[in-house]
Write a protein that binds this DNA or RNA. Structure first.
Length: 426
RNA sequence: GGAGACGUGGCCGAGUGGUCGAAGGCGGUUGACUCGAAAUCAACUGAGCGGCUUGCCGUUCCUAGAGUUCGAAUCUCUACGUCUCCGCCA
């Protein structure tokens, strides 16, 4: 959510951003509602001041027989009725305003390029070189099925399409990757490991921006106000909501492993085979809470923390800067990490690192008190995958495949696999 | 799931219908004293919103929502949470 004052004071600038995001909205609606709101507040507060004064007088006068207390009461009661009326009207206006503000996307960073779609995302840097195979590299589903480490049919049998069963060394490597990533972020990058709830209430999802707009992407429990989390960003970012942190306690770095649940509405037909796009997948997430002055430096560091995972696993990747037409609703600036997949002969998303500035902080009411003791300010929040575990498994299987159908285990992962160096056909 | 108790500011804790944004303490900031923020003393010390003469005025907030009343931290109802006992369970 953005500050209504910012929007009204910078209508042209923000309207331009909306256009670049391809979000159609007439900002004039907001100024009308805001003017109405101020008018009602003026009237109702005026009446409340009079009522408070009158009630106080009754309290002091009730033992004085020369005063007509019933008449005073009647007069103030009329005021009370009028106040109730105005307050109801005010609540309606504020709700309408709030609904608009909650469905408007974030600002864009000056360093976010303008563009239409993913084809306009500039490559910021490239690391490693795609390996040359002297045989035709296979897609991960063929390799994994032959090795008996993934069973796609059983996933469908137990749940529905876009669910997969990992077993044996496939399940083992998934767990190894989670441990490897968490160890890296906690020991080398200074993050606090958290195990959050995998279900959260509606207000929590409003805090990070998934609600109210994107309910169709989420799984909702039938009998409770609880939703399955689509990413650990949601519980981690909300950990300190509705509070005022001390500047000396910032920045805060959190990391968590969680499963993520997404309905994938609107992606029918895309990545239908394999583990690429699942309704349930594992992810290690990183979240930062920091001051406005440091958030863009923190974004660079966060992104490099995610890149380290790929570097250590020796997986070629590049970093792209998401353009205005592709960037997410709540983000001002996003770097996507895309890993090389030999079977597709292209780079595919494996991590997304975003600076949301104070967009989520406003929705969560998360502030900090500057160390000079001045008024509380909203924090900036950042999040990034560190990284998507299932897609890392795909990248390892494809990049480390051998001609005989076996997979070499990346050196850094060997200790997490009980010393195992290869997965062979049985 | 059943029964009972409770939910007050950063923390602890008074307050059972008016003068209460709320005693007192702790914590914090500043000043005095001092070689020295060790002790002592003094003052200050919540947030949101609205207005304008930008420092003040007004208003709202005592878990949340609704109600009674001229007036609610205080009374009523509901929800949520915490604690204790019982039941159940990993």
């Amino acid at each position: 959510m953005l500050d209504i004052k910012y929007i009204l004071a910078n209508q042209e600038e923000y309207a331009g951003m909306l256009k670049n995001r391809k979000h159609d909205f007439d900002l004039g609606i907001l100024s009308g509602l805001d003017a109405k709101r101020r008018k009602i507040i003026g009237e109702t507060e005026d009446l409340k001041a009079k009522r408070n004064e009158g009630s106080k007088r009754i309290g002091m006068a009730k033992n004085d027989p020369s005063l007509d207390v019933p008449a005073m009461k009647a007069e103030i009661k009329a005021m009370g009725d009028k106040i109730k009326e105005l307050d109801t009207e005010l609540a309606q206006v504020e709700e309408e305003l709030h609904t608009h503000l909650m469905t408007l996307p974030n600002k864009l960073s000056a360093t976010t390029p303008i563009g239409n779609d993913e084809n306009d995302n500039p490559v910021v840097r490239t690391w490693g070189e795609p390996k040359k195979f002297d045989f035709e590299p296979k897609p991960h589903w063929d390799i994994a099925e032959a090795l008996g480490i993934m069973d796609f049919e059983k996933g469908v049998m137990l749940a529905q399409s876009r669910f997969t069963v990992l077993q044996g060394l496939g399940a083992r490597m998934e767990r190894a990757l989670v441990n490897f990533m968490l160890d890296l972020h906690t020991k080398e990058h200074g993050y606090l490991e958290v195990e959050p709830p995998f279900m959260v209430r509606s207000a929590i999802l409003e805090g990070t921006g998934q609600l109210p707009k994107f309910a169709e992407d989420l799984y909702k429990l039938q009998n409770d106000d609880l939703w399955l989390i689509p990413t650990a960003e949601v519980p981690l970012t909300n950990l300190n909501r509705e509070s005022i942190l001390e500047e000396k306690d910032l920045p805060k770095y959190y990391t968590a492993y969680t499963p993520c649940f997404r309905r994938e509405a609107g992606s029918a037909g895309r990545d239908v085979r394999g583990l690429m796009r699942q309704h349930q997948f594992d992810k290690v997430e990183m979240v930062k809470i920091c001051t406005p002055e440091t958030s863009y430096d923190e974004l660079e560091k966060l992104t490099s923390n995610a890149e380290d995972v790929l570097k250590i696993l020796n997986l070629p990747y590049h970093v792209v800067n998401l353009c205005s037409g592709d960037i997410g609703f709540g983000s001002c600036k996003t770097y996507d990490l895309e890993v090389w997949l030999p079977s597709q002969n292209k780079y595919r998303e494996i991590s997304s690192c975003s600076n949301c500035e104070d967009f989520q902080a406003r929705r969560m009411n998360l502030r900090y008190r500057p160390s000079d003791g001045s008024r509380p300010r909203f924090v900036h929040t950042l999040n990034g995958s560190g990284i998507a575990v299932g897609r890392t498994l795909i990248a390892i299987i494809e990049n480390y495949q051998n001609e005989d159908g076996s997979i070499t285990i990346p050196e850094a992962l060997v200790p997490y696999m009980n010393g195992l160096t290869r997965i062979d056909l049985r």
